[in-house]
Amino acid sequence: MKWQGRRQSDNVEDRRGISGGGKTLIGGGVIGIIILLLNVFGGETGQTVGSVLQQMQGGQQTQTEAAAPLSKEDQEMGEFVKVVLADNEDIWSKIFEEHGMVYEKPKLVLFRGSVQTACGGASSASGPFYCPGDRKVYMDLGFFEELKTKFGAKGGDFAIAYVISHEIGHHIQTLMGTSDKMRQEQSGKSEAQANKLSVALELQADFYAGVWAHYNKENLDVGDIDEALSAANAVGDDAIQSKMQGHVVPDSFTHGTSEQRMYWFKKGFNTGDIKEGTTFEEIR
């Protein structure tokens, strides 16, 4: 992606120079790996993970802060993230304006290790997530190395851009009331039915990521879309379950299959029309 020398958003909170942080709700080891596998790209993961692990890990740990200087590579990656967020701000502000709405710009928090959010505490093991409680995207960039080494994705900077734009998609769903409506519809449903609604929400976020890429074509390099599709393929529920347990359980899917995730990203990229994000109608 062509990003050097372009506008950077000032809505990024870089907390990578601080480690530690009060109550730890998500640990490493088995729990961390399970959370990562089940919640990768987690949508509104912070809310889910926080509520579950507060019950599992109620202990209070001593809060510590330690300086962790950023390398040149870290600093460059932070600048890249700021450009991607700026592109999302510009594109979604324009789309919202065209539809008679006002786009509220979210903040993006970069962290290492663990972080406290309005949705609870989280660690790097939770993967990137959006918290509707404070309307922020949280991300430990170390996740993307895991995406390559453990999930077989190609990697590349546009895989990061795709993930950021997917999480911004959840912010858009919050602004448009889609997330609240989905949670209301989940009430009283069976687990399988509720999971289908969750899948629809996640696939729509993939679609919105594709819409963003559609309007950012002038800044794309050859191979960028392939990097995004490789990431989407790697984190499909079926791919994750196959790696984790050797078989798949479709009724337990919460994010969609690899094929679905790639399809909806491509649909957003090809159409650029937010009205085409009809995942709820098609997934039911």
Results as ranks from 00 to 15, higher is better:
Lys94Arg: 15
Gly155Tyr: 00
Glu73Ile: 05
Gly27Leu: 13
Glu104Trp: 07
Tyr138Met: 04
Ala122Pro: 13
Leu108Cys: 02
Phe158Trp: 09
Ala125Gly: 03
Ala153His: 02
Met101Ser: 11
Leu141Pro: 01
Glu73His: 04
Asp74Gln: 10
Pro69Trp: 05
Phe143Gln: 12
Gln47Leu: 11
Thr149Ala: 09
Gln61Lys: 12
Phe129Thr: 06
Val109His: 00
Met101Asn: 12
Gly21Asn: 04
Phe143Leu: 14
Lys23Arg: 15
Gly127Ala: 03
Gly29Pro: 00
Leu85Gln: 10
Leu36Asp: 07
Ala66Pro: 05
Lys72Ala: 13
Glu44Ile: 11
Gly21Ser: 13
Ala66Cys: 05
Val163Phe: 08
Pro106Lys: 07
Pro69Phe: 10
Gly50Gln: 11
Val40Gly: 09
Val49Ala: 13
Gly120Asp: 11
Glu146Thr: 12
Gln61Ile: 04
Glu65Trp: 07
Ile35Asn: 12
Ala161His: 12
Gly121Ile: 01
Ser93Ile: 04
Tyr130Ser: 03
Gln75Phe: 03
Gln60Lys: 11
Asp157Cys: 01
Cys119Ile: 00
Leu25Ser: 09
Glu146Tyr: 06
Met77Asn: 15
Leu141Arg: 08
Asp157Met: 07
Gln75Thr: 15
Gly100Ser: 14
Gly58Asn: 07
Arg112Tyr: 00
Gln55Met: 09
Tyr138Thr: 08
Leu141Trp: 01
Met77Pro: 04
Ile95Cys: 02
Ala118Met: 10
Ala68Asn: 14
Thr62His: 09
